[in-house]
Amino acid sequence: MQDPLSLQSRANILAALRHNQPESSALPPLLYFPQAPAAELKEQFIRIATGIGSVVLTADTFEGAVELLQNTIKPGQKVLSTVPELSSDEFIYPGKDQDPHRYADLDIAIFKPLVAVAENSALWITDEQLITRALPFITQHIYMLVDISVLVADMHEASRITGLESQKYGFGTYIAGPSKTADIEQSLVLGAHGPRSMTIFLYGSGA
């Protein structure tokens, strides 16, 4: 804020706004909708995730999900896990390097989202878990280990939880499906700049 031009602009903008902005208008009440039963949320989450190009596999337990996950990895694929339970040699390519450029040839990155949203299948992850912020974007494929207990109905509930004091982050993102574009004649292509696929391993009692 040392730049005098910027300071001058700041003063002018704020003064002009105070002069021109309308009379105070009250904020509406925060929205909250009753959360549907877990089974319904799960059905909705899977339907929407599949609809936007994700693959969803279900297991009763975390161990079961890990088994499913291991079965989908092909020999020779470079895999990096950010999940503490998955830290054996096969999950730490190329080591836990902070320089994001090192991950340019990564095949699979694995994450454990903190919140999953049924209405749009968005999964919330933050840099508290990420080794480096570019990881979920630079990897060719993304794997998500989702505990069914983090599933909520909608973005109102998700915003509430991700905004709690206990949720510290410098960077956080909702990810819904593989990266995609329809910029060429509205033909949907998966794998625009980020991951070409997303596989969700949904686990927990009732999953």
Binding site: A122, T132, G170, G172, T173, Y174, A176
Partner: peptide, 14 residues
């Protein structure tokens, strides 16, 4: 679409 693929929240620089 139900949401964009990425809704990224930038709070602090890395």
């Amino acid at each position: 679409q139900p949401i964009t693929t990425y809704s990224s929240h930038f709070k602090k620089p890395a």
